[in-house]
Amino acid sequence: MDERQIAKRIEILKIEHRDLDAAISALFEQNSTDQLQLARLKKRKLRLRDEMAFLEDQLIPDIIA
């Protein structure tokens, strides 16, 4: 992947991350008792954050000290 593709993928992941955050908030506001669904959404959100961090690290050049 080149830098442009990585940046585009990061933007897509950020949008999905925000959408998951909104879905989690909505379930909390509804006092949802579906703990399994909440756990799945939170786990997905963490995976997205990890993937974003990995991709952002690829955009930063390694500096040899």
Rank of each mutant, 00 (worst) to 15 (best):
M1C: 09
M1Q: 11
M1E: 13
D2F: 05
D2A: 04
D2L: 05
R4P: 06
R4N: 13
R4F: 11
Q5V: 09
Q5K: 09
Q5W: 07
Q5S: 10
I6T: 07
I6A: 00
I6G: 01
I6H: 02
I6L: 05
A7Y: 01
A7I: 12
A7K: 12
A7L: 11
K8A: 14
K8P: 05
K8I: 13
R9D: 03
R9P: 01
E11F: 04
E11I: 06
I12L: 14
L13M: 08
L13G: 01
K14C: 01
K14Q: 13
K14N: 07
I15K: 14
I15H: 07
E16D: 08
E16C: 01
E16F: 01
D19H: 05
D21G: 15
A22N: 10
A22Q: 11
A23V: 07
A23T: 10
A23G: 06
S25H: 10
S25A: 11
A26W: 03
L27I: 04
F28C: 14
F28L: 15
E29N: 12
S32P: 02
S32C: 03
T33S: 10
Q35M: 12
Q35C: 08
L36T: 12
L36R: 11
L36Y: 07
L36K: 11
L36H: 08
Q37H: 08
Q37E: 15
Q37R: 14
L38A: 01
L38T: 04
L38K: 04
A39L: 13
L41Y: 02
L41C: 01
K42R: 11
K43V: 09
K43S: 14
K43G: 09
K43Q: 14
R44M: 05
R44D: 04
K45L: 06
K45D: 05
L46T: 08
L46W: 03
L46D: 09
R47M: 07
R47C: 06
R47L: 07
R47I: 07
R47Q: 08
D50N: 13
D50A: 10
D50Y: 06
E51Q: 04
E51R: 00
M52G: 00
M52E: 04
M52D: 00
A53F: 15
F54V: 11
F54C: 06
F54P: 02
F54R: 12
L55T: 01
E56V: 04
E56N: 05
D57Y: 06
D57K: 15
D57A: 14
Q58L: 15
Q58Y: 05
Q58W: 06
L59Q: 03
L59M: 03
P61H: 03
P61S: 04
I63E: 07
I63F: 06
I64S: 09
I64V: 13
I64R: 10
I64D: 11
I64F: 12
I64N: 09
A65N: 14
A65R: 15
A65I: 11
